[in-house]
Design a protein around this nucleic acid. Sequence first.
DNA 1: CGACTGTCGAGTGTCGACAGTTTGGAGATT
DNA 2: AATCTCCAAACTGTCGACACTCGACAGTCG
Lengths: 227, 227
Amino acid sequence: MTTTTRGFATIQQRDLVNQIADMLTEALLKGDFAPGVHLAEAQLARDFGVSRAPVREAARLLESRGMLVSQPRRGFFVRTFNADELDDVYDLRLCLERHAIRLLAGKLTAGMEAALSDQLETMRRVARNGTAVQQIEEDVAFHRMLCEFSGNHRLVRVFDELCHEMRFCILLIGQLYDDALRVADTHEPILEALRTRSPEAGEAALDYHIGVAQQRVVEMFRERAKG
Amino acid sequence: MTTTTRGFATIQQRDLVNQIADMLTEALLKGDFAPGVHLAEAQLARDFGVSRAPVREAARLLESRGMLVSQPRRGFFVRTFNADELDDVYDLRLCLERHAIRLLAGKLTAGMEAALSDQLETMRRVARNGTAVQQIEEDVAFHRMLCEFSGNHRLVRVFDELCHEMRFCILLIGQLYDDALRVADTHEPILEALRTRSPEAGEAALDYHIGVAQQRVVEMFRERAKG
DNA sequence: CGACTGTCGAGTGTCGACAGTTTGGAGATT
DNA sequence: AATCTCCAAACTGTCGACACTCGACAGTCG
């Protein structure tokens, strides 16, 4: 959080574009728009009570995040995913996190370890009494920490992009965690491997953890496409 | 090239936004704008002879590609790179290509091998009589093929983004290849390793090849920042 | 009956304009 | 001389409007 010299939080210059982008994102994740449907600028502008200009820019933003696609002279459409694309996303995500773990294993500090441990505790807490969305967010936050602690900021940016897409697909499926507490526990081996400072052990733990999730999510997604 | 049933090339619907984005990209890569300088929409609009709307959208596009950054109420600025950021880009690029090689080693077809071999030949040709820009493009094309043949389309997209940034930095440095022919030759071991279908050998060849480039480019970039 | 053509509504691409903000400098003050 | 204040110019964010394009539907001709 950026702060002024007096310690006040700076007033967020949340212009219309970002507000609209956030609202659209939320609507997309809530499933208000079916994949593939056309988003008319003028209609959205009326809905939000603004002109088309900021709507266009917000849509472009979401396009760059892979949530919308545009066709010349036809406008914006909600991004459609197929199971293969989702599989690619998970594959790439694993690639990134493996790399992050490899980097991280060589320079894990006590502070990082504590932060990861805390995050795991948070996951367990929301697993007991939290919404599905919260559970997903805290899960993502753990993995994001791994990326952050790797020290490669560019990697984090790509990870964030992939997360947007995974979230999109997961919430499209409906529900993911039948036993959130058990899912939270499966992160323990990753942290355990990191404590041994062994890149190989870390990669192995990740391979298993993400591999299971990938298989499960992609499978559910493939089923949903059929039914 | 898409064609109609009679063989006509489809008319490119190149709207202003894409044209402007391309021209801006070219100008940035040519070094017409120093890193960090402010790009005024109205001025660009006058230069291009259009209104501000398409200029804004083009700028947003370049922002999403990481070539510009924007600040609320202040507008767009040419992205500045420091050596550490460039190092991150190369680090991530190696991560991606290692993954691509790993995937590719298991399913290399004769067609893929021939394509890579051809591309290597093209590199040698432009190394003898081609511009520095051509040499870089053909070099990138070889590595892009590796990503494409991996079968993970999402990976290719990220690779393309990283390439934009690397190109930006490399052309900022001025020149890269003192001996382009030798550089082209250093790709041979990668192809050779792939022929043995060994993921480990492929990764090792890549590690060396990209490691050398990374060290060299980042070093040159760091020097330039000082002088 | 089928294929082509003209028309119409919806929607995007682009433009010029206005309001509020930021910036840089002239002038005043210490 | 250095710093502060205030103002004007420049710039961004947003808006409403217009022209052109696309897709659909009805009508026409073979």
